[in-house]
Simulated assay, not measured.
Amino acid sequence: MTDDADAAAEEPTDAEGHADAERHVDEPATDPEAEAAEAASEPEAGDQGSGEGADPDRSLLDRVGDHDEALAEELEAERADYEERIDELESKLTRKQADFQNFKKRQQKKLDQQRARATEDLVERLLPVRDNLARALEQDGDADIREGVEQTLGELDRVLEDEGVERIEPEAGEDPDPERHEVLMRVESDRPAGVIDELYRPGYEMGDRVIRTAQVTVSQE
């Protein structure tokens, strides 16, 4: 009885035996030579194509290369366009500079012509004054020409006045103006020191411009 019980304990149950059989079926035996042959038959990563099982990194590099080439062509086209625009702007600038130089020449010529006409007009108006002075000198030596000279001088003053020319004639006792008065000398005088004592020669001014300063003497300090 005891021997039968021990035998029954040593023998596996049907369930355990079935489980061991399944484990043996699911776990195939490992063959080193078969594994080596399988590894040798697998393609290397660098030899795989772009199809199924291809290296994704290699495909990405190809796409980046295509993008770089397209970008380079686009940049080259933009560079050519910029160069064309630069050439066009330089051409326009050259023409503008030439036009401006021509404009300056025309304006200068116009100004010179205006000045020449103004000078001619002034000379024409002064010629009668010169004629009157010549006629006065042609009088006999005993003739009194003072009246004629005074008339001629008045005529000359009127011409200058019409041209906007004014006389600079400071009064005695005024302070000298270095921009309008030229001090010839300092003299002893009963006037306060440093003021105009006497007008030696009148000056002339036209607008804001002094044509000739007045010459004066100044009382000594």
Rank of each mutant, 00 (worst) to 15 (best):
E44N: 08
V210G: 04
D112N: 14
K110E: 14
K104D: 10
A77G: 14
E147L: 05
Q107P: 04
R58F: 03
H67E: 08
Q108P: 01
Y82F: 11
Q97K: 14
G51V: 00
P170T: 07
L60M: 02
V123M: 10
V123C: 07
D121G: 07
F100C: 06
R106C: 01
R167L: 13
R115V: 09
D20N: 10
T217D: 02
E120N: 13
Q97D: 14
G53H: 08
S91E: 15
D162T: 08
D157E: 15
Q48V: 14
T152R: 06
P128C: 01
R201C: 05
E52A: 08
V123H: 09
D121P: 05
I168P: 09
R63P: 00
E155H: 12
Y204N: 06
E52S: 03
R23C: 11
A80D: 15
G65C: 01
R212W: 03
G17T: 14
E166Q: 13
P192I: 00
G65I: 04
G141V: 06
R130K: 10
D66H: 09
K109C: 06
A7S: 07
L153E: 07
K104N: 10
P178E: 14
T213A: 12
V183Q: 05
L61T: 02
L60V: 08
V159G: 09
T213K: 13
P192C: 04
K105C: 00
D66I: 02
T13N: 05
K96T: 13
E16C: 00
Q107M: 15
S41P: 01
G154C: 02
Y200F: 00
E166P: 10
K105W: 05
Q114K: 15
K96C: 02
A143I: 01
K96M: 13
D121V: 05
A70N: 02
E22P: 02
G17I: 02
D208W: 04
H18W: 15
D4T: 02
D55M: 03
L61W: 00
V165W: 10
V159T: 09
D142A: 13
G207I: 03
L133T: 08
N102T: 13
L89N: 04
S219K: 01
G154R: 10
G51F: 07
M206K: 06
V129A: 11
L156E: 07
Q48K: 11
L89R: 12
